[in-house]
Deep mutational scan, measured.
Amino acid sequence: MAAAAAAGAGPEMVRGQVFDVGPRYTNLSYIGEGAYGMVCSAYDNVNKVRVAIKKISPFEHQTYCQRTLREIKILLRFRHENIIGINDIIRAPTIEQMKDVYIVQDLMETDLYKLLKTQHLSNDHICYFLYQILRGLKYIHSANVLHRDLKPSNLLLNTTCDLKICDFGLARVADPDHDHTGFLTEYVATRWYRAPEIMLNSKGYTKSIDIWSVGCILAEMLSNRPIFPGKHYLDQLNHILGILGSPSQEDLNCIINLKARNYLLSLPHKNKVPWNRLFPNADSKALDLLDKMLTFNPHKRIEVEQALAHPYLEQYYDPSDEPIAEAPFKFDMELDDLPKEKLKELIFEETARFQPGYRS
Rank of each mutant, 00 (worst) to 15 (best):
D88Y: 14
F331C: 08
P23A: 07
K340V: 04
Y316M: 05
R191Q: 14
L346I: 09
Q132V: 03
L150G: 05
E96Y: 08
H269N: 14
K48E: 13
S142F: 08
L237C: 12
P356L: 12
L290M: 11
P23F: 00
K114G: 10
A189T: 13
Y139Q: 09
W275Q: 03
Y139K: 12
Y358D: 10
N158S: 14
D251Q: 05
M293K: 14
V188T: 06
L107Q: 14
Y263C: 02
C161N: 01
F129Y: 14
Y233H: 15
E250G: 09
P298V: 09
L155E: 06
E186L: 10
R277Q: 06
I89M: 08
Y102Q: 10
N144Q: 06
P339S: 13
H61L: 15
D179K: 03
S153H: 01
A4H: 09
Q66V: 14
T295S: 14
Y36T: 15
L150T: 02
V39S: 13
T190M: 03
Q236T: 00
E303W: 06
L267W: 02
F329T: 01
R194F: 06
T206M: 04
L155N: 01
T63H: 14
N224Y: 15
L76P: 05
L241W: 13
E350L: 06
L137A: 07
P176T: 15
K330S: 06
K138G: 12
P298Y: 00
Q306E: 05
W275K: 05
W275N: 02
G16A: 09
L137T: 12
I302F: 15
L107R: 03
V104E: 04
I95W: 10
I256G: 09
T185Y: 02
R359Y: 08
L289G: 12
G32T: 04
G204T: 04
A143I: 02
R79T: 08
H269K: 07
Y193E: 07
R225G: 05
P280H: 14
V51D: 15
A219I: 10
Q132M: 06
K259Q: 12
F183M: 09
L294R: 00
R191M: 07
L200W: 11
L267H: 00
R91W: 06
G230A: 01
G245C: 14
A52S: 14
T190R: 05
G242R: 00
P274C: 08
V46M: 13
V304E: 11
I95D: 04
D332S: 07
P247S: 11
Y205K: 07
A6I: 14
Y43D: 13
P319E: 10
T295K: 06
F78L: 14
D100N: 15
V51E: 13
N271Y: 13
E305T: 02
N27A: 08
D251V: 12
T295P: 15
A307E: 00
L121A: 02
R301K: 11
N262W: 00
H61A: 08
L146I: 12
Y64F: 15
C161I: 06
V145R: 03
G8K: 07
A92M: 03
A92Q: 00
V39Q: 07
G22N: 12
N123R: 06
C127K: 02
K285C: 09
P247H: 14
H125G: 08
P196W: 03
P226T: 14
D318V: 13
V304G: 15
L156T: 01
I347Y: 15
E345P: 02
G32I: 13
Q105G: 07
G245L: 10
F129T: 02
L170V: 00
P268N: 01
H120S: 03
D124R: 00
S360L: 13
M98L: 13
I347T: 11
A42K: 00
L121T: 02
E71A: 15
S320K: 07
P298G: 08
Y193Q: 06
V214D: 07
E322F: 00
H120Y: 12
R191V: 04
I84A: 01
Y30I: 02
A52K: 04
T181Q: 06
K207H: 08
Y263E: 07
G16K: 08
L346R: 00
T110F: 00
L112F: 06
S284E: 06
E345C: 03
N154S: 11
I324M: 05
Q355M: 08
P93K: 06
L313Y: 00
A171W: 00
A327C: 00
L287V: 04
V21A: 06
V188R: 07
L134Q: 14
K231C: 05
E186W: 01
V214N: 06
G8D: 03
Q132W: 02
I103Q: 09
R194C: 12
S223Q: 10
P298T: 14
K48Y: 10
E33S: 01
D106Q: 09
D177R: 10
V101W: 08
T190K: 03
P319L: 09
K270V: 04
G245E: 03
V145L: 12
F78I: 15
A3L: 13
P226Q: 11
R148E: 07
T110R: 02
M333G: 06
H61N: 14
G85I: 07
P339G: 11
P176L: 11
P23C: 00
T63I: 12
Y36R: 15
M199K: 14
S284H: 10
N262F: 03
V18R: 08
S223W: 11
S320T: 13
Q17F: 07
G32N: 04
E33F: 04
P229W: 02
Y312N: 15
K231E: 08
L335P: 01
Q306H: 14
V14K: 10
Y36G: 15
K259H: 10
T185G: 03
A5F: 00
